[in-house]
């Protein structure tokens, strides 16, 4: 058994050329552009959708308060969606890299749990607001239809909402959870490694 292996000597044998700082600054710029682009994209999407709905309000001039309330709820649903998205995107990249490992793991953990909460809650609020908004908005136009037609319209819409609520929403939540759960498991493992015997 040889206990005098020169580990430090072997370690220091590893050589590499120092890349030019130019390469690094190119990466910094590319990174900045990418994260900026994401935020611009989601916000433009919100503004365009809201503009479209406001155009409907202006063009079709709904008379009843229910229609107006419906429109407000739909816009609110999308605004909340994008607002939360804007909040969670930076969470993924915003970690204080200069904390010690133990602290930064804790921080990462908190962020991930917050992310799960935001995603699930946001999705629920989004669906509720959107469904309520659509039902309210339809009311004015349903009144102008025959009873049968109005019933069919509401039935189809409600079926569609139910499909979203009972099928698409749980699926989406499950997908998001699977992603974060695996990560949280790994984080827990790291935490154990660090806290062991301390």
């Amino acid at each position: 058994m040889n206990n005098n292996i020169d580990l430090k000597g072997l370690w220091n044998k590893q050589e590499a050329d120092i890349p030019d700082t130019k390469e690094l600054f190119e990466k910094i710029n590319a990174y900045k552009k990418r994260s900026f682009g994401k935020i611009i994209f989601t916000n433009t999407l919100l503004i365009l959708t809201s503009a479209f709905i406001i155009f409907i309000w202006y063009y079709y001039q709904p008379e009843m308060i229910s229609s107006k309330l419906g429109i407000v709820l739909i816009i609110l649903a999308m605004a909340i969606f994008v607002f939360v998205l804007n909040q969670t995107l930076p969470l993924l990249t915003k970690v204080d890299f200069d904390l010690d490992i133990r602290e930064s793991l804790k921080q990462l953990f908190r962020y991930r749990e917050k992310q799960i909460f935001l995603q699930t809650t946001m999705l629920n609020i989004y669906f509720i607001l959107l469904s309520a908004g659509i039902c309210l908005y339809m009311f004015e136009y349903a009144l102008k239809m025959t009873f049968l037609l109005a019933a069919i319209s509401y039935f189809t819409t409600l079926m569609w909402i139910a499909f979203n609520w009972f099928y698409l929403r749980p699926r989406q939540i499950k997908k998001q959870r699977a992603k974060t759960d695996e990560l949280i498991l790994k984080l827990e493992m790291l935490n154990r490694q660090i806290s062991e015997n301390d």
Binding site: V95, F97, D98, L99, D100, I101, S104, L105, L108, E182, L183, K186, L187, M189, L190
Partner: peptide
């Protein structure tokens, strides 16, 4: 110490990018 801290955190964050078993 500060630079090494940043590097160590970057190393650990690899865990988010790797899907394979540790």
């Amino acid at each position: 110490t500060w630079v090494f801290r940043i590097a160590s955190n970057h190393c650990l964050r690899q865990i988010e990018k790797q899907n394979r078993m540790p």
